[in-house]
């Protein structure tokens, strides 16, 4: 890619990101809805089920928060799928594509907007958790690591959402892909220790992406060594990202040939 076209791509992506960020700031309800559901689940687990779940020495909210953050991201990326689907439907994508606009800019704009919107939702959820008694002695480096792994997870799920938005036939179809993702934390170490599960469920729980990610974030918050969970978590995120990105760009190329 020449410098000239790289500059164009960056300029076009910036303009289009500004557009979709403006969509969000004009419908703040989408960010609030994204945060409300995970907060409700957190309240439920901490105050209702919390007493019945053995979380060891950790306070309930400290134990639950990592899983809640992942649910926040899973529900947040559905809006990316919906926004992309709406763009495809409304004809505005065709306008961009018949113009001298960098092809990849339209997708990257939605991806960057997703990162931004999810970051805001995550901050809201963490703030509520602090109000509910969440405390951590994690230093800046540990927080940076938490932010990094959450960003990587968001990026992976966002590209999955891009696939859903590109291939959906209806708005409902565009958001349906996220339901299994929101369910994954419940069959992981996010809310109950996996040792308490029946053997087949435990086997699944310990070999799906949410468990190592939750364990990594939990260790970082508790200032414990992360161990191999950290590498496994990163490997899962990168694998999801690479696969979803490859699939999405192939679909995009086919749709906009």
């Amino acid at each position: 890619m020449s410098t000239h076209s790289l500059n164009h791509t960056i300029a076009d992506t910036t303009v289009l990101t500004g557009r979709s960020v403006r969509h969000i700031t004009r419908s703040l309800d989408t960010i609030i809805t994204t945060a409300v559901m995970p907060v409700a689940i957190m309240v439920l687990f901490v105050y209702v089920f919390g007493g019945a779940i053995d979380t060891g020495d950790a306070a309930s909210v400290d134990y639950m928060l990592p899983g809640i953050l992942l649910i926040t991201i899973a529900s947040g990326v559905t809006y990316t799928a919906v926004r992309l689907f709406t763009d495809m439907q409304s004809g505005i994508f065709e306008r961009f594509q018949s113009m001298p606009v960098a092809r990849s800019a339209a997708l990257w704009a939605h991806v960057l907007t997703s990162l931004l919107a999810n970051a805001v939702s995550l901050v809201i959820v963490v703030a509520v958790a602090v109000l509910m008694g969440f405390r951590t002695g994690a230093g800046p480096l540990a927080w940076l690591a938490v932010a990094g792994i959450l960003a990587l997870f968001t990026l992976g799920l966002t590209w999955l959402a891009v696939n859903a938005g590109l291939s959906a036939k209806s708005v409902d179809g565009a958001s349906a892909f996220a339901y299994p993702l929101m369910f994954l934390p419940f069959i992981s170490s996010a809310f109950v220790p996996t040792e308490t599960m029946p053997a087949p469920v435990q086997a699944f729980a310990e070999h799906q992406p949410v468990t190592p990610i939750v364990n990594t974030i939990r260790s970082l918050f508790e200032q414990q060594p992360v161990g191999t969970d950290g590498w496994v978590a990163v490997a899962w995120c990168v694998a999801i990202l690479v696969l979803a990105y490859a699939l999405a760009t192939a679909t995009y190329r086919r749709k906009t040939a």
Binding site: H8, A11, D12, V15, L16, R19, R22, H23, R26, S27, S90, G91, I92, E94, R95, F96, S98, M99, P100, V101
Partner: peptide
């Protein structure tokens, strides 16, 4: 320039913002 069958405008933006958007994309 293509004007499609269904008005390809961004409903969430104002008329001016729509025009500025396209002008920026045309550099």
């Amino acid at each position: 320039s293509l004007t499609g069958q269904f008005a390809a405008v961004d409903e969430n933006l104002s008329g001016r913002e729509n025009l500025v958007l396209v002008a920026r994309l045309r550099h």
